[in-house]
Design a binder for these strands. Structure first.
Lengths: 132, 132
DNA sequence: TATAACTCCTGTAGTAACTACAGGATCAAG
DNA sequence: CTTGATCCTGTAGTTACTACAGGAGTTATA
């Protein structure tokens, strides 16, 4: 059993974040030492690492929690997992599309923008045009 | 001079958001009618429309504010505008890259995930592997 | 043994950019 | 005169943390 600092180091999840997950009920309350300090087991650390990977993959915390629960369940529900993941993939793809459109629009806006202009063409367009 | 609801309709910025911009000093305080209701001029609405476009382009509000101020300045500083825009474009591009990597990782994770599995391969990987 | 440096505790507040009320006042239409 | 729309201020909620404040206990060094 290890203290919170070590659990943080082993899992990559910050100390404050670990306590936050505990407050929010994302992870179970850990054991406590006689001096009231939190004590983490190997499987506690495993849960934190699991959550870390989900978050790094961009899953919202609520999804990460759901995936963790599925992962702890006796019969793992592969279909639910896939559903969550595919919804997430779809939202990632639509974000990519949106950002690509943005990139395009921004490139166009700055195209004629060079030092020495009295009137900045980008500002002009932001002020006046309706198609942005 | 129009009321806040009409200004919201004409600019596309929500009523609460308009008041929020005012509180934050993003837009100047509008005139008030005798009954204390806000009154917006055409240029007030112009500012709101400008901000709306900046936000739609993904500029953080602080950038939108800066761009608005540049736009109001007597001598428009095209170089500053371009700098803000290019920094923003760079961050958009890096977000796109990051999301593409995510999409790839997620697709791989779900590849072998089909209903009927006793052990979900995605959960397996989330639990055990270190390369995610 | 004293003391410094470290880690931990609880609880609260701050972040970005809104959004959603609550509770009340005012206004326009019929 | 009443109904419904709009407006006002002020506060709290959203996401997922992060940063303290203020205090207590632990470990390492002198």
């Amino acid at each position: 059993m290890i203290a919170i600092g070590e659990a943080s180091r082993q899992s990559g999840v910050g100390i404050e974040t670990i306590r936050y997950y505990e407050r929010e009920g994302i992870v179970p309350r850990p054991a406590r030492a006689l001096n009231n300090r939190r004590l983490y087991s190997a499987s506690d650390v495993g849960r934190l690492r699991f959550l870390k990977k989900c978050r790094d993959l961009g899953f919202p915390l609520s999804d990460a929690k759901a995936l963790l629960e599925l992962s702890e369940g006796s019969a793992e529900d592969c279909r639910s997992v896939k559903e969550l993941a595919e919804t997430h993939i779809a939202s990632v793809r639509s974000k990519i599309d949106e950002l690509r459109r943005l990139e395009h629009a921004l490139s166009e806006l700055t195209a004629n923008c060079d030092s020495g202009n009295v009137q900045c063409p980008m500002l002009q367009r932001l002020r006046t045009m309706d198609d942005i």
